[in-house]
């Protein structure tokens, strides 16, 4: 989501968010998540405004994703007091050189300071996003950076293999493309180190100390229902998936006219729904029933799945090849 940097504009947008939330009065939410770059952009005061219009009576988790440069004692205190229980820090790396090589804004605070402030604020849980496989990060630097992170670890870690997406600056720079072998190694490293420290893998890119799973995300992976508000937000209700217009201008004009901002909708047929369920489940330690696979023998003999009493679970190797494995799902 992008919009021009005008306070007036943001005010309007937040007004609309609140208005859209009010149309959902009949719903009780188990968890709430403020994701992407928007929370950092609109600031904690507006987040508080939005939280105020939500019925949080049955809500067990409120997460907010924040960019390191927007974290501070006052911000954290305000969020905590308005009901936020979990902070997700979009760190990418403790190493500023790596951050810069990924084309991100340089951090104004060290990871040590950030983690100290978050811990001081005493949220129920918190998490850090790491990017794995940057070309600028040598094997040695990676080990050093990982150790530095683990001196002040978050109880929940998201580790994402660097992906080259069409339309990003990285896409145009072949020299910065990650090397497959490196990605593979980084993932193995992170998994074994975290597992050794008592973390459990929750999903392909997520690990946590028991009790620190992200409840909100777990719902996505079990094909649960959710409603997204705002421009470009996605929703799912019992097999119907839809999304709002990605244009902030259109979003504002639709909501202001008390119209729906829905731009796309898809009703999944039985087959797609079943495939989606298994594909999502396969990302988790729960695994999928063995009979949902074609050529399970091949996958097992190649060390991609482990079979445990009729359930197939991805091995570490299988996790980094999960798209390939998913193609064997019926």
């Amino acid at each position: 989501m992008t919009f021009s940097n005008k306070t007036q504009h943001i005010d309007k947008y937040v007004e609309c968010l609140k208005r859209e939330i009010q149309t959902l009065k009949d719903h009780k939410f188990h968890s709430v998540y403020f994701g992407g770059g928007t929370p950092s952009f609109i600031g904690e005061e507006r987040i508080m405004e939005i939280l105020a219009v939500l019925d949080l009576s049955e809500t067990v988790e409120v997460s907010v994703e924040f960019h390191p440069n927007h974290i501070g004692n006052r911000v954290l205190k305000n969020l905590k007091s308005s009901g936020v229980s979990r902070i997700s820090l979009g760190l990418q790396s403790v190493d500023e050189l790596v951050v810069a090589s990924l084309g991100r804004t340089p951090h104004t605070k060290s990871y040590e300071k950030l983690s100290y402030e978050i811990k001081e604020a005493e949220f129920k849980s918190w998490s850090v996003d790491l990017i794995l496989g940057a070309r600028s990060e040598s094997d040695l630097a990676w080990r050093t950076n990982l150790e530095r992170f683990l001196e002040n670890p978050s109880p929940h870690v998201s580790g994402y293999l660097l992906t080259v997406e069409n339309g990003t600056p990285l896409y145009l720079d072949k020299d910065r493309y990650p090397i497959e072998e490196t990605l593979f190694k980084r993932y193995f490293d992170l998994d074994s180190v975290l597992t050794g420290l008592g973390y459990e893998w929750n999903e392909i890119s997520n690990w946590s100390i028991p009790g620190h799973q992200c409840i909100h995300n777990e719902n996505y992976w079990s094909q649960g229902n959710y409603i997204g508000v705002g421009a470009g937000a996605h929703s799912h209700l019992d097999g119907t998936r839809w999304s709002n217009t990605v244009s902030v201008e259109k979003y504002i004009s639709h909501i202001s006219e008390r119209k729906s901002a829905k731009a796309r909708e898809e009703v999944l047929d039985m087959n797609s729904r079943a495939f989606e369920k298994n594909w999502l489940l396969l990302r988790k330690p729960d695994g999928v029933p063995l009979d949902a696979f074609q050529k399970a023998d091949l996958l097992a003999s190649e060390g991609l799945i482990e079979v445990d009493s009729g359930t197939a679970i991805l091995t570490v190797k299988g996790r980094v090849l999960s798209s390939l494995v998913s193609q064997y799902l019926i």
Partner: peptide
């Protein structure tokens, strides 16, 4: 193949 994974998989 050594890597073929959709790293991020959330609501959107």
């Amino acid at each position: 193949r050594r890597k073929d994974v959709i790293a991020k998989c959330y609501g959107g």
